[in-house]
Design a protein around this nucleic acid. Sequence first.
RNA 1: GCGUCGAUGGCGGAGUGGUCAAUCGCAACAGACUGUAAAUCUGUCGGCAGUAGCCUACGUUGGUUCGAAUCCAACUCGGCGCA
Length: 408
Amino acid sequence: MKKNFEIEKKIPGALGRAGNIYTPHGVVQTPAFIIVGTKSTVKGVHPDYLKNIHTQAVLANTYHLYLQPGDDIVAQGGGIGAFMNWQGPTFTDSGGFQVFSLGEAFGTKVSKVASGEIPMVSETDRTQQSKAHKLAHIDEEGVTFKSHINGSLHRFTPERSMEIQWNLGADIIFAFDECTSPLAGEAYQRQAMDRTHRWALRSLVRHNELDPEKKQALFAVVQGGRFEHLRQESARILAEMITEHGDTFDGFGIGGSFNKNDMGTAVKWVNEILPEDKPRHLLGIGEPRDIFEAVEQGCDTFDCVSPTRIARTGTVYTTYGPINLMNARFKTDFSPIDTETPSEPSLKYTRAYLAHLFRAKEMMGPILASMHNVFFMVKLVADIRQSILDDRFYEFKKEFMDKYYGGK
RNA sequence: GCGUCGAUGGCGGAGUGGUCAAUCGCAACAGACUGUAAAUCUGUCGGCAGUAGCCUACGUUGGUUCGAAUCCAACUCGGCGCA
């Protein structure tokens, strides 16, 4: 079996490490922030810019590209990378997140990261009526989706997800899983986790039929919610999972829901068990604080919609915390977006100019803010990597956190 | 000059006797956003008071009425028509 990951240096006294993931489209130097480009485009950001700022990889979405334009068309276009003119490494999520966002979370404000008090809602408390409005329905075999675009019905199974991801052609793909809600109780988490494990094996089997030469790396997705013993069990089962042909996973994703306050702890439970010599991707995370915690506890890659999503509504990252450019005080603030971050937008434009663009609803507002935020996160995680290589991770962490959160 | 229609909170525009401090949209002011249902969503938005409540308000003045943004009269301003 070819080697697709190597560790360069570890963080003393922790699980963290700096390393390299090798893909057919280049090396991902880890830790790395993978930029989300759901529909084979990073919203508002040109691929050339991503390249210029040394973005390590782009993550697209199986469900969205399957619906539009269709994975067959993406395949004809040469796969997501060629289709969007991105030459670097690519990932695709399996559609597992949509099981949550279009299912349990649909029509609610529930986020996969819960903060503060978590109301425990048992499965029986949910009415049939509310379930009827959801766009995703789960059964043992797979998930039936109702398209959010035109209402048409679609069936996803682990096998189908592998086939679509094979067509999309990303370098790193994920097993089809169920991202559970942070509101789900232990009984449901257990049930969903066990099912996700069965789906993982089916994904592994189907993937190896499609890709005997192993052009794509397949990552399993650890579940278990906020329950320590479930997380540990999930990590153990997936780490040991092997097909009758001897195939195993190339890496692991850590998915599902988290408690905002102890994300590092949850990640640690898992990474203490996962094999050290395979890469670990923390799905859908996150904020600077989360990333520092997760890197320290052994995660190698991350993806998150936050940089581009918050940018579109006027929020930009700065060294001293995020700011919302729509706030009145920025109307006449002619300083750079962030004096300590040399992104192209920050070097060339003022806060007042961006504030004007956002108020005028000019598309350059979201574009420039997205460019800045992508730069900020890519650079932050690159800086974290460098701090590990330089043996100064903890110093860098404290320095950054003190500025960014200002003691909060 | 005559006729006619209209004048509502920053703007647009509902409301036509009590349930109106007044639907809604925009603007404004905040907040949220963690494997993108998202250039989205939520809250506030006359003044004062921590909810109770009080005050000032629907062009102006006066009137009808238990009660008026809503009915009547005059006036002021504006649109349109005729001279």
